[in-house]
């Protein structure tokens, strides 16, 4: 368990290879974010600044859905808070790897935190992986891909009009669904996952257009899991 955290060139390239299907799978999502940004009258430079610094598509979509002129500073910040609160829960899970780094690179790694590289890294960590470079190798191409696809979406907004249910848009959801498979640890996950899904569904219905539902579902599922294990004398 206490093998030292390493940071190798091989691990970095392994991450880059594993990022490629993600870059492709998330491309339609980035494309849509770019399209919608253009529709709300932002310039290409503003679109690129937004994607480079915020780098959280779901939060950007929520903020843009309620966009005004002049821009709604407080409402946009609140949308970012509600949709991205999950990152605050995700960061600590990476702690065993992050503690192997000096503070500056550690917080740079956290600044790049998004869902998919995190899920792959956590799966690798659970399987005994100790190479933090894997995370960086996945994260950097994903960020670059995000910049390219959002810009491409922005630039094609005038010429292209995909219907909202176009099969390509399923790519972003498919990536999440596929990543669930290696996270399944067996029967003990069943009830927590059910609670997570059920609570998320309920909260999404009560408070639409935010992502409190993700936070509510995740917390509900985690508490269920902890409660179940707490009753088990073998744990």
């Amino acid at each position: 368990m206490e093998a030292p955290i390493i940071f190798t060139r091989a691990g970095f390239w392994r991450g880059v290879r594993r990022s490629l299907p993600l870059v492709a799978g998330l491309a339609p999502f980035g494309f849509v974010v770019g399209l919608i940004t253009q529709h709300h009258g932002l310039s290409l430079l503003q679109c690129m600044t937004m994607n480079a610094l915020i780098y959280a598509g779901a939060a950007q979509l929520v903020a843009l859905a309620n966009w005004t002129h002049p821009a709604p500073i407080l409402a946009a910040a609140f949308a970012a808070l509600v949709v991205n609160l999950r990152f605050a829960l995700m960061g600590p899970v990476l702690a065993p790897w992050l503690e192997g780094l000096k503070p500056v690179p550690r917080y740079l790694c956290l600044a790049l935190l998004v869902d998919h590289p995190w899920a792959i890294s956590v799966t690798d960590m659970r399987n005994g992986g100790r190479d933090m470079a894997l995370y960086v190798g996945i994260s950097l191409p994903l960020w670059l891909g995000w910049m390219c696809t959002t810009s491409a979406g922005f630039l094609s907004a005038d010429t292209l009009n995909l219907p909202p249910n176009h099969p390509l848009f399923f790519g972003a959801l498919a990536a999440f669904i596929a990543l669930l498979v290696p996270l399944w640890r067996g029967k003990r996950d069943a009830l927590p996952w059910l609670v997570a899904g059920g609570m998320a569904l309920l909260v999404a219905h009560i408070i639409p257009h935010t992502s409190w539902y993700i936070v509510a579902g995740a917390v509900g599922g985690c508490l269920t899991g902890a409660a179940l294990e707490g009753r088990d004398p073998h744990e």
């Binding site: 899920a119 799966t123 990543l179 399944w184 996950d189 899904g197 579902g217 599922g221 985690c222 744990e235």
Partner: peptide, 19 residues
């Protein structure tokens, strides 16, 4: 113990309402 359930639960919480 609760945090160990987070990865699966967070993605389930995304996917179920979306579907």
């Amino acid at each position: 113990r609760a945090l160990a359930y987070l990865p699966g639960c967070i993605f389930t919480a995304y996917v179920v309402p979306a579907l």
